[in-house]
Computed example of a mutant assay.
Amino acid sequence: MHIEPLGIDGAYLVKPKIFPDDRGLFLETFSQPAFTEAIGHPMTVAQVNCSSSRRGTVRGLHAVALPGQARYMTCQRGALIDIVVDTRIGSPTYGEHVAVELSADNRHALYLAEGLSHGFSPLADEATAVYLCSSTYSPGGAIQVHPLDPALDLPWPTGHELVLSDKDKAAPTLAEAEKQGLLPTYAECVRLYEDLRAGHNAERERVA
């Protein structure tokens, strides 16, 4: 399994090793040891979500207020584009994005740390996303940014009418969300990441 950082701190692309044979194939979708070595701490899995979407659907941009929710995204059917947006105020890449293709063919996964927002949209007639979450759903902590914010200029698929939920249609732009005090700061997020790594290192020393 190869885990490589993307252009935004806290976002990683995971490329598992695939073992095909005449029966089909086998791969590790998630490996805690490999994840921990790359990120510096293990991922707590509190909830696993499954989302099926038809072409034209845009889900996002979503995040969770700190202590936040890290996500480990995979596509089990079809293909989708997943777009990570840095919505951490004060980050050197604030307002920037990275986009990756996840599919049932490439079997790639995307990890995004707490504080980052993301959204996804099918690249096929239908796509099924399955993703691990570090915390359970908390409606009071949900952060939404409008996925069609012109200032973000995100590369959503073209050629089909985009379908958004009512909540996503009503979401503020990034600038509005910042003005309303909805977004975490980069400094807060970095402290959280450091605390997670420190906790892991302390536990490792305790059992050594």
Rank of each mutant, 00 (worst) to 15 (best):
61 L>I: 11
121 S>V: 09
74 T>D: 04
59 R>N: 02
158 T>F: 01
157 P>S: 12
20 P>A: 08
52 S>Q: 01
72 Y>C: 01
182 L>T: 02
126 E>G: 14
83 I>A: 13
74 T>V: 13
179 K>F: 08
188 E>K: 02
51 S>P: 11
47 Q>Y: 12
174 L>A: 00
23 R>P: 04
99 A>T: 11
126 E>M: 13
4 E>I: 14
15 K>A: 02
69 Q>G: 01
119 G>L: 13
82 D>I: 07
53 S>M: 10
138 S>I: 01
201 N>T: 15
203 E>V: 12
194 E>P: 03
120 F>E: 06
141 G>T: 05
171 A>S: 11
115 G>V: 11
26 F>I: 04
19 F>A: 05
186 Y>Q: 05
73 M>E: 04
161 E>W: 07
81 I>T: 15
136 T>A: 02
175 A>Y: 15
177 A>H: 07
51 S>T: 15
57 T>L: 10
93 T>G: 07
173 T>N: 14
191 R>N: 08
51 S>G: 09
195 D>A: 15
63 A>C: 06
182 L>A: 07
44 T>C: 00
187 A>H: 10
126 E>C: 10
136 T>H: 09
31 S>N: 10
189 C>M: 00
9 D>G: 04
48 V>N: 07
80 L>A: 12
128 T>N: 09
125 D>A: 01
68 G>V: 00
37 E>W: 13
166 D>C: 05
69 Q>W: 11
45 V>T: 11
83 I>G: 13
197 R>W: 02
3 I>G: 08
43 M>D: 07
103 S>E: 14
15 K>N: 04
127 A>I: 11
90 G>K: 09
87 T>P: 01
16 P>A: 07
67 P>Y: 14
166 D>H: 12
58 V>D: 04
95 G>A: 10
168 D>W: 14
25 L>C: 06
93 T>S: 15
166 D>N: 05
24 G>I: 00
12 Y>W: 14
16 P>N: 05
122 P>R: 09
190 V>N: 02
123 L>G: 12
72 Y>S: 09
95 G>L: 07
174 L>G: 07
5 P>E: 10
75 C>H: 12
38 A>Q: 10
149 D>A: 06
192 L>C: 05
56 G>C: 01
173 T>F: 12
156 W>T: 00
188 E>R: 08
194 E>A: 04
22 D>T: 14
61 L>E: 00
203 E>R: 15
201 N>D: 15
51 S>Y: 10
118 H>G: 12
140 G>T: 06
174 L>M: 01
161 E>C: 12
126 E>T: 14
162 L>R: 13
15 K>D: 03
163 V>P: 08
